[in-house]
Deep mutational scan, measured.
Amino acid sequence: MKVIFLKDVKGKGKKGEIKNVADGYARNFLFKQGLAIEATPANLKELE
């Protein structure tokens, strides 16, 4: 799953980066902790 990092995550990505991560990792950790959001077309447009 592609995500947009909202904060730096050690060993995974830095704020503003778009990366592929495991679905479970994204849903169970990154999204719940507010560290990333899903890289949907709408979210990508907001990032620009």
Rank of each mutant, 00 (worst) to 15 (best):
N43E: 06
L6R: 03
D23I: 15
P41A: 13
Q33R: 14
K15T: 09
P41S: 09
K15V: 09
V9K: 01
I18H: 03
K32I: 14
G13K: 01
T40H: 06
D8T: 10
N20P: 07
K14Y: 11
A42E: 14
A42S: 12
V3Y: 00
V21W: 03
N43F: 09
K19R: 10
A36F: 01
I37T: 06
T40I: 06
N28W: 10
K12N: 07
V21K: 00
V21F: 06
I18R: 03
R27I: 15
I4Q: 03
L44F: 08
D23K: 13
V21A: 02
G11A: 05
L30G: 01
G34V: 03
E48A: 14
I37W: 07
G24I: 13
N28A: 10
R27Y: 13
D8W: 07
K45Y: 11
K32P: 15
E48F: 14
P41Q: 11
Y25A: 06
F29R: 06
N43W: 05
L44P: 04
K19E: 03
A39K: 02
G34K: 09
K45S: 11
K7L: 10
E46M: 13
F31S: 02
E17D: 10
L30M: 03
A36Y: 01
K14S: 10
K7G: 05
R27N: 07
K2L: 15
E38V: 07
F5A: 00
G11M: 04
Q33I: 08
V9E: 00
G13M: 04
E46G: 11
A22T: 12
G34L: 06
N20F: 15
K2F: 14
K14N: 09
N28L: 11
G34H: 10
A36T: 00
N43P: 04
L30H: 00
A22Q: 14
G24A: 14
D23Q: 14
P41H: 09
N28E: 14
R27T: 10
K19D: 03
K19F: 06
L47T: 07
E38T: 05
L35I: 06
L35A: 05
K19L: 08
K32R: 10
K12A: 15
I4P: 00
F29P: 02
D8G: 05
I37S: 04
L30K: 01
L47K: 06
G13N: 02
G11W: 08
L30Q: 00
K32F: 07
